[in-house]
Computed example of a mutant assay.
Amino acid sequence: MSRRTPPDSPFLFETIEGPDFSFELAGRRDGLWPVAGTDEAGRGPLAGPVVAAAVILDPDNIPEGLNDSKQLSIARREVLFEIILSSAIVSIASSAAGRIDGTDIRKASLDAMRRAVLGLSLRPALVLADGRDVPPGLACPGKAVVKGDARSFSIAAASIVAKVARDRMMTRADLVFPAYGFAVHAGYATKRHRNAIGSHGPCPLHRMSFRPLRQDGVETPEEELPA
């Protein structure tokens, strides 16, 4: 089972100015080095995988401008994606729609994060995971960091890698299933996407456990609509 930790300093969330390297340096002071950050992208869409990344940053070569991927423009994410891949140790893993439907989105997300961490070429001594859960099955200690992509450079880097990797996957998926517009909305429940499902029915990339695809009409707890 995943380990859930209580929020650390929740009263600070309204005053977060951006991520830094303090969580990583604290681990280093405790003798836990290297430190990896992990995050995922794509919990909310109706179609496509949930993608996770794990990143070990070089403390002497941290890319400038790291932040929660949602706070960055598409162009800036793309630039940082390439910089991170060239300057850090990176691993990417995903859970497809079938795995999501066979378990649930939370478990599928945590499993993708676990596999991303295990795929790193350098074994971390500590993993910082975005959210309230530490992925189960890690080979080292883990710490859950609420709003971690806005607080930790390593998690922010992982959020950027996961987001760009998933967006690229969905752009390629658009070539295979052009009727749905995946390159535009990345599988989220936009009006265009819902209309396409109504006209063409679901494709193999759709998450059949998500409303409105789920036959019993019950909304899954982790479902999210785009802002």
Rank of each mutant, 00 (worst) to 15 (best):
178 P>W: 02
15 T>R: 14
115 R>G: 02
115 R>S: 11
58 D>W: 04
226 P>I: 09
108 A>Q: 01
108 A>P: 02
130 D>R: 10
122 L>T: 15
110 L>R: 00
35 V>G: 02
152 S>K: 03
31 G>T: 03
201 G>C: 10
112 A>K: 02
217 G>L: 11
65 G>E: 14
182 F>S: 10
35 V>E: 01
142 G>W: 05
38 T>W: 01
208 M>D: 02
202 P>S: 13
197 I>N: 01
167 D>E: 11
12 L>G: 00
186 A>D: 05
183 A>T: 03
141 P>E: 07
140 C>D: 01
94 S>N: 09
101 D>A: 13
32 L>N: 03
40 E>F: 03
75 A>N: 11
209 S>R: 00
56 I>D: 02
104 D>L: 06
179 A>M: 14
14 E>T: 13
225 L>V: 14
7 P>V: 08
107 K>Y: 02
48 G>F: 01
13 F>Q: 12
214 R>G: 06
24 E>I: 06
220 T>S: 15
48 G>W: 01
37 G>L: 05
142 G>E: 00
177 F>N: 00
143 K>T: 12
191 K>Q: 12
38 T>Q: 04
207 R>Y: 06
22 S>R: 14
45 P>H: 03
1 M>C: 10
205 L>A: 08
115 R>K: 13
57 L>T: 03
102 G>C: 05
39 D>H: 04
16 I>F: 11
213 L>A: 07
167 D>H: 10
83 I>K: 14
117 V>Q: 11
159 S>P: 08
61 N>R: 15
180 Y>G: 04
44 G>C: 06
227 A>L: 14
25 L>N: 10
227 A>K: 15
205 L>R: 00
183 A>H: 12
161 V>L: 10
194 R>S: 07
154 S>Q: 06
51 V>L: 04
215 Q>G: 13
192 R>N: 08
87 S>G: 01
65 G>W: 15
64 E>V: 14
51 V>T: 14
58 D>L: 04
200 H>K: 05
208 M>G: 02
225 L>S: 15
5 T>F: 12
32 L>Q: 11
201 G>D: 09
194 R>Q: 12
10 P>A: 07
211 R>N: 07
136 P>Y: 13
21 F>K: 00
86 S>K: 15
34 P>T: 02
204 P>L: 10
193 H>F: 09
125 A>H: 05
111 D>I: 13
119 G>I: 04
152 S>M: 08
26 A>N: 10
120 L>R: 10
26 A>H: 04
158 A>T: 09
221 P>W: 08
81 F>R: 01
139 A>N: 14
92 I>T: 13
184 V>N: 06
54 A>N: 04
52 A>F: 03
204 P>H: 08
164 V>L: 07
9 S>K: 10
84 I>Y: 09
114 R>H: 03
14 E>A: 15
129 A>R: 07
35 V>A: 09
28 R>A: 14
67 N>K: 01
124 P>A: 10
85 L>K: 15
139 A>P: 00
61 N>D: 15
94 S>Q: 15
185 H>I: 00
128 L>C: 06
114 R>L: 04
161 V>Q: 08
158 A>I: 09
119 G>W: 01
111 D>G: 00
